[in-house]
Simulated assay, not measured.
Amino acid sequence: MKFPSNWSRRLGLSLLGVILIAALGYVVMRSGPLAPVRVTVNHVTAGSLSPSLFGIGTVEARRAYLIGPTTAGRVSKVLVDVGDAVEAGQLLAEMDPVDLEERVKALDASIARAAHVVAAAQAQRHDAQARSELATVMARRSVELGAQNFMSAGAVEAKQQEQASAEAASAAADANLAAARQDTQRLAAERAALRQQRENVRLLAPAQGVVVSRDAEVGSTVVAGQAVLRLIEPSSLWIRVRLDQGRSAGLRTELPAWVVLRSDPSTRLSGKVARVESSSDSVTEERVALVSLDTLPRGLSAGEMAEVTLTLPATAETLLLPNPAIQRRADQVGVWRLEGSQPKFTPVRLGLTSLDGRVQVLEGLKAGDEVVVHSEKTLTQSTRVKVVDQLRGSTP
Rank of each mutant, 00 (worst) to 15 (best):
A115C: 00
E286F: 00
Q208T: 15
S301N: 11
I239Q: 06
A249G: 08
K77L: 09
R38C: 01
V283I: 05
T318W: 01
V75F: 05
E133L: 02
V104W: 00
V348I: 15
P51N: 00
A173T: 03
S280E: 04
L391E: 11
Q148H: 03
I56P: 03
D244P: 11
R298W: 02
R242P: 02
E277H: 05
D174L: 12
A120P: 00
T395E: 14
Q185F: 03
S213Q: 14
K344N: 12
E157Q: 14
E199L: 06
K344E: 14
E285C: 00
L194P: 04
S220K: 07
T284N: 11
L290Q: 07
R202S: 13
L243E: 10
D174S: 13
V156I: 03
M138V: 10
Q163L: 00
A128T: 08
A109L: 13
M138Y: 04
P297Y: 02
A153V: 09
L321Q: 10
L352R: 10
V28S: 05
R140L: 03
L15H: 05
F345A: 09
L312S: 03
A302T: 09
L229V: 09
A130K: 10
V222N: 12
E233C: 00
S50H: 08
A188D: 06
V291W: 04
R392Y: 06
R247A: 14
R195Q: 13
G364D: 13
A35I: 04
T395N: 07
E376Y: 00
K366Y: 05
D174F: 03
M305C: 01
D81L: 01
R131E: 09
A169Y: 04
Q122W: 01
T311W: 00
A128R: 04
T353L: 13
Q161S: 07
V201E: 10
L312C: 01
V372R: 10
I56G: 04
E190Y: 06
D356K: 01
A46Q: 12
Y65G: 07
R242E: 15
L204D: 13
L290G: 04
M95W: 05
E199Y: 01
A128K: 05
A120N: 07
L338F: 08
A22R: 02
S282P: 09
V18F: 08
L92N: 10
E144K: 05
L34K: 09
D244Q: 13
Q381Y: 05
A169K: 07
V86D: 08
I239T: 08
R252C: 02
R198W: 07
R247W: 02
G73P: 14
P265R: 04
T380K: 15
V86R: 03
A139R: 06
L24Y: 08
V104F: 01
L391G: 11
L310E: 13
L11Y: 09
R140M: 03
